[in-house]
Simulated scan of single mutants.
Amino acid sequence: MTGTGSGVRRVVVLVMVLLLSWTAGCGGSGESRTPAVSFGGVRDQGSSGYAVAELKGFFTQQGLTVSPTWATSGTVLMQGVASGDFDVANLGPAQLYEAIRNGACARVLRPTQGAAYGVIAQTGLGLDTTLPYPRVLTQLRGRTVGVAARGAAQELVLRSLLTEAGLDPDTDVTWVAIGGGAAAVSAFAAGQVDAAMSYPQLEVNLRATGAAFDKLVDLAGANSPLGEFWQSVAVANCEWADDHPDLVMKFCHALNQGVRALEQQPDAGPQAFAHLGLGSNPGQARSLWDRYKTPVVEVPPLTEENWRHQTMFTPHGTAPAFSEYVVDGCSTA
């Protein structure tokens, strides 16, 4: 009898363990009931909408946990979203179009930033910043030009501008990958390049270190030479987006709330900048927001016309099929 009783007890314990495991796997804990979305981005103003959605609890309200990974170039982000390392990433459309043309797959959710680029040069070169565009860029003939990564969005856009200025981007300039963040600041400040494609984060950090530069072209806003340009768009891994349409719409709704808050709530932008490390203190973050907010609060809409406009900055001048690669209803969720 003793052997039989212990055997029954072992069976009962085993059944209880299996039941507990099954219950946990089906959402028995609060953590497992909250879907986690992996996000890849760069700590710049293009990520402001995501930052606000996180800070103000919009993702949490949708039952989502968003886990960010911060990178320094669109190349890393494109590889991550294509491979499935990221469910969602923030990157440049020109680079995205070329990746899709070469066989990658990604679903576009919405644009997250308008044009915020610029072209800067070393002050010691004595270039004439008063010349009109595109003539001002002819002064880059024979110069070294820094971009975050070769073949990424910055280079693709600047190549189109140099071509418009009558330069051959393959022979008239020498391209140098200078990375992002502190690496880009160090490279420019040390004179490793004559000019560079700039963005607010780079300019702010250069000024913080006392490094001077001349602004050859200001490309911020829809009235710049870039027009209705999207500097970044939110894109999703194809498999994740296709298999989880409800999660995608929840993510889109929260992100859209974040973008609207940037437009409507005076504190949202400065808080986002501070959260992203743009500014060494809240006061500086607010000052930077006042200076660089335009591309974030005036994002050109997601339309087929603007979708085609981005092809001006791609090597082949073609766009993927709008209906195939854009998630319908996300931008208005």
Results as ranks from 00 to 15, higher is better:
C330I: 05
V299W: 00
D243M: 09
D218H: 03
V11E: 12
P266I: 07
G146V: 06
A115G: 13
I100D: 00
A184D: 05
S280V: 14
L140S: 03
Y133C: 09
G210F: 00
F229V: 02
Y292D: 14
T314A: 06
S224M: 09
N306E: 04
A272M: 07
T112Q: 07
R143V: 01
T4N: 11
R141T: 04
Q61Y: 10
S224R: 07
A234Q: 09
S186V: 01
N237T: 04
V12T: 12
T69E: 08
T112H: 04
R159M: 14
L255T: 09
F322K: 00
G124F: 00
A190T: 12
A236S: 10
G63I: 08
V11C: 13
A222M: 10
G30Y: 13
V259G: 09
A36D: 12
L162N: 02
G114V: 01
C330T: 06
F188G: 01
V176N: 05
V66Y: 05
P111D: 04
L156E: 01
G227F: 05
L96T: 04
T314S: 05
R308A: 07
A152C: 06
Q113A: 11
G227T: 08
P315S: 11
G269T: 04
A234Y: 09
N281G: 13
D168M: 07
T34Y: 03
R43C: 08
R308V: 00
T75W: 06
L14A: 15
G329P: 05
G30S: 14
S160A: 15
G49C: 06
D246H: 08
S323E: 15
T209S: 13
A82G: 10
L20Y: 13
G84F: 13
G74Q: 02
M312C: 05
M249D: 13
N256E: 15
V299K: 02
P245R: 11
R33A: 14
P300V: 04
Q192N: 09
Q271W: 06
R207G: 08
L276V: 10
S287G: 15
V176M: 14
A121Y: 01
G25V: 03
G92E: 02
V66E: 10
K215G: 00
K250W: 12
A177F: 10
D87H: 15
G5R: 11
V42F: 01
F188H: 02
L219K: 00
F59T: 06
W70L: 12
R107D: 08
S29E: 10
Q139S: 10
A149W: 03
A177Q: 10
G124E: 14
F39V: 07
Y50L: 08
V52P: 01
L109K: 02
A236W: 06
